[in-house]
Design a protein around this nucleic acid. Structure first.
Lengths: 223, 223
DNA sequence: ACCTGAACACCGTTCAAGT
DNA sequence: ACCTGAACACCGTTCAAGT
């Protein structure tokens, strides 16, 4: 009696799957996420997942999108007092922080927004705010994309890689200049932070220069 | 008779494995590269590969490094006449072109140079040239890293994703501003190119501003 | 509608065995 | 040294069957 098949209340939901999958990826990495392992974690059998997602990749996309959803976008709201430069700056920091909280999913997230709703919502918010600030639409699109390139590239190229700390594997003689610079590899985190800060500042300064040149000619309404 | 076991000449070599693996990834994508499939392509059995590489990941690293090796570094040579700004610009284009030629391996390459020799050689060349141009060593390190962030992030976020061209899957009503911008998704390639060009220019302009401020105070010898 | 076990066609890697 | 087949412990996904 009491055969287990379909309970009155569903055991699974998309939200519960995404949450558990995210926790598993955070704790043990992308490679640890198999449909069977995830199902076990959820107390069901492997194929059950396919009642809620069509493929494992869709689950991963949903996990990535949940991270995107945590990015602060308040600086792009119409009544926010921050100017476009400050908005981009603050957004970049929040963006990076969201990725830093979930470094293992970054490779999925960095593949572009694709059809992920939260990813698209981010792009939409940046675009709207830049157009309002006086940027031509084409440039506004570019700005959203290039900022994403930099932030995700930085995340992927630094804290998202596995911890390979026995970096002594290479012979310093092969890299004449790097000896000095890469002793800093001990403080790799500092290098990452510094490169990010320098790059972000350069990007914003450079965009500022471009803006002075021809963006404000259309005289967009600003706060 | 004629039992097949060990021929007088090895059937495999690291180079042949990397070459075949690269061709397979280029043609069918990362997911198509299994040790068994690769071995079949090479006319050997799966486990044979383990005589030449310790893991499948090491093979992928080698494939990625072969792409890094194609990046032009001539602009960073001591006797090259290009100034640091032009050098960075030309390098970024060559870097991006190398990735565009092998978009499928970009996710591996974007995880940072790790212990890949060609990747480290690139970092070394940039660092050396920037220091010679008058940048303080810490800043020179940052520049190499941040340029890599941007170029790999751009590659990964645009042409490296699978071709998902039925992007009509989302409802434009959910993204108030994006409707206009994303009709350009038909010309996605144009957006990618534009975002890259705008970002690269902003980066170089911004670094120029920083350079004027305090880099040249040390009065480095320039061509 | 939602879950099950069984099954299919795969994986990466190890290892004793061969030459 | 370099390759083999067999084996281990897995995969993602499909599907008929159960309620």
């Amino acid at each position: 009696m009491c055969a287990m098949a379909r309970p009155r209340k569903p055991l699974l939901s998309r939200d519960r799957i995404v949450e558990t999958a995210g926790a598993l990826v955070d704790a043990e990495g992308l490679a640890a996420l198999s449909t069977r392992r995830l199902a076990a974690e959820l107390g069901v059998s492997g194929p059950s997942l396919y009642n809620h997602f069509r493929t494992k990749d869709e689950i991963l996309d949903a996990v990535a999108d949940a991270v995107s959803a945590k990015i602060d976008l308040s600086m792009f709201e119409e009544d926010d007092p921050r100017d476009w430069r400050t908005a981009l700056h603050d957004w970049a920091l929040s963006y990076r922080a969201a990725l830093a909280d979930h470094p293992q999913i970054v490779p999925v997230l960095a593949q572009g927004p694709g059809r992920r709703p939260a990813g698209l919502k981010v792009a939409d918010a940046v675009f709207g705010a830049m157009v309002r600030a006086g940027w031509p639409p084409a440039q506004a699109t570019h700005i959203g994309a290039l900022m994403r390139y930099f932030v995700t590239g930085s995340a992927l190229g630094s804290f998202a890689r596995g911890f390979v700390d026995d970096e002594t594997a290479y012979d310093p003689a092969d890299y004449p200049h790097l000896g000095q610079a890469h002793r800093l590899a001990e403080h790799r985190e500092k290098v990452d932070e510094g490169a990010f800060a320098t790059g972000l500042r350069a990007l914003l300064d450079g965009l500022g220069t471009q803006y002075e040149r021809h963006a404000h000619v259309s005289g967009g309404a600003e706060a």
